[in-house]
């Protein structure tokens, strides 16, 4: 089975692409450190959203200080501080079967840590991608290579996983935010400081 390659705005049914997939490994990667001048720390996070596109509670925001949510149905595998390595820089595990029914959508966001202080942004990041792997078979199912001509954005919504009837679908988004993680938090109803 070949990987489905999405371009911006495209979506695909997970259920149809790989009906056996119950546990999804969401891998995110980037290449921010083609240079060695300043440290770049990019963080992946996920927001579990209800029908109203807001989190049910702050616990539905999965990030480096809150690694598990929804009773373990989603789990962050840890922070990679350097972006080194060819594969995924960070990943999250999602168990589709055990996700509470009132979670309609999961959005995956990458932010640059301390972006303002370090004057960093997605204009300085290249080779970003998000991919879905069937955790049980180890096969890559869907991949989205962000070819955005990003500029001064400090947060980037890579993609979203959402319910569509009885199916799960995956949509390639690549939406940038200039206000960093806090502006994304505000959008989804998480009050952060």
């Amino acid at each position: 089975m070949a990987t489905v390659s999405l371009s911006k705005g495209g979506n695909v049914s997970l259920t149809k692409t790989d009906p056996t997939m119950k546990k999804v490994l969401v891998g995110l990667g980037w290449d921010a450190r083609s240079t060695d001048g300043q440290d770049f720390d990019l963080d992946a996070s996920a927001f579990l959203l209800g029908e109203n596109s807001k989190v049910r509670s702050p616990e539905d925001f999965v990030f480096y200080n809150n690694m598990r949510a929804a009773g373990g149905a989603i789990e962050h595998t840890g922070d990679n501080r350097t972006g080194a390595g060819d594969g995924d820089d960070e990943s999250l595990k999602v168990n589709l079967d055990t996700l509470p029914a009132d979670i309609a959508k999961i959005v995956f966001v990458v932010t640059i840590h301390d972006a303002t202080a370090r004057s960093q942004n997605f204009g300085q990041v290249s080779g970003a991608f998000i991919r879905l792997v069937n955790e049980e078979s180890g096969k890559e199912i869907i991949r989205f290579d962000l070819s955005e001509d990003a500029s001064t954005e400090t947060a980037m919504l890579f993609a979203e996983l959402y319910r569509h009837g009885s199916e799960w679908k995956f949509k390639a988004v690549a939406q940038g935010y200039k206000g960093g993680l806090s502006s994304v938090c505000a959008e989804y109803g998480v009050s952060a400081n």
């Binding site: 083609s34 240079t35 060695d36 001048g37 300043q38 204009g123 300085q124 001509d149």
Partner: peptide, 19 residues
Amino acid sequence: KFRFVSQGFNGGLKPLAEH
């Protein structure tokens, strides 16, 4: 287009050229 990159190498010309 033109992008203002402003990223570099502590090691100077050699790692830059190799990059």
